[in-house]
């Protein structure tokens, strides 16, 4: 287990380093935007992992709600925490790298654009989710959080609709892949992008796996403490030693 983890982590970091090299040194400089365009190789993969994590969080929360008293439920809860935290971190990366790029490309840090605003609102919603977890007593946190996750997910289409139809001037770049001939990405850019997409996906899985393992360990510790507290024999033994 530990060996597999080391191999996976090493491969991921090697691929990330290679991806970074491709993005910073190999891929050609964009004609109009210049070097700041290279932020795209981090920005888009982060957004992808962030979105994926929030979807995983929702599914894990559903499984928890259905299998609450089974061992599977506790695993699902650990996955829900892990994916929510990683998702919020990725969304933070997106929200930080985006304005850095926008400041150079648009001349402003922020625009109330559909994608930007939706990302911001989702980020707020999942921060609230993490806050709720933090403020709930340990035994209640999984259930309360899973319930809130259902609300959060149901909110996504409404957020999208509300922002979409508010006549914001959207100027976030549209996806440039596979559009009309003559457009789209330079092959070297595409290569750098795909490598980064893959390496970030692996990195996201790695982070979620680490956090998941940690959460499982915490759950087990909690269960053990509970068992000791409830076991009359152990308690009697403790009384004697005291």
């Amino acid at each position: 287990m530990k060996n597999k983890f080391t191999i996976f982590a090493t491969l991921t970091f090697a691929l990330m380093a290679y991806g970074l090299y491709q993005a910073l040194a190999v891929a050609p400089t964009e004609r109009t935007m210049g070097d700041v365009q290279r932020i795209f190789y981090i920005h888009v993969p982060s957004a992808w992992i962030g979105g994926l994590c929030l979807a995983v969080n929702f599914l894990a929360s559903l499984v928890y709600l259905l299998q609450r008293n089974q061992p599977l439920g506790r695993k699902a809860d650990a996955l829900a925490v892990a994916s929510a935290e990683v998702g919020v971190i990725c969304a933070t990366v997106v929200l930080v790298t985006g304005p850095i790029w926008a400041h150079k490309a648009w001349g402003v840090w922020w625009a109330w654009d559909l994608r930007l605003t939706t990302t911001l609102v989702l980020w707020l919603i999942y921060l609230a989710y993490l806050m709720l977890r933090r403020f709930s007593p340990a035994g209640n946190a999984p259930l309360l959080a899973a319930v809130l996750a259902v609300f959060s997910f149901a909110d996504v289409p409404f957020v999208w609709f509300a922002i979409r139809f508010r006549e914001y001037r959207g100027n976030h770049p549209k996806p440039v892949f596979g559009s009309e001939p003559g457009q789209g990405l330079h092959p070297a850019m595409l290569k750098a992008f795909l490598i980064n997409l893959l390496s970030f996906t692996l990195f996201g899985i790695l982070l979620v796996a680490v956090r998941y393992t940690l959460e499982r360990a915490r759950q087990e510790l909690q269960e053990r403490r509970l068992r000791i507290a409830l076991d009359p024999e152990i308690r009697a033994a403790q009384e004697v030693t005291r």
Partner: peptide, 24 residues
């Protein structure tokens, strides 16, 4: 009702209600 069991429950309600209510 969700925040009854949380610490500092009065603070919790706006924290979770406002983000979810944004589209509304």
């Amino acid at each position: 009702a969700l925040s009854i069991r949380t610490r500092s429950r009065e603070m919790m309600l706006p924290l979770i209600l406002f983000p979810i209510s944004l589209p509304a």
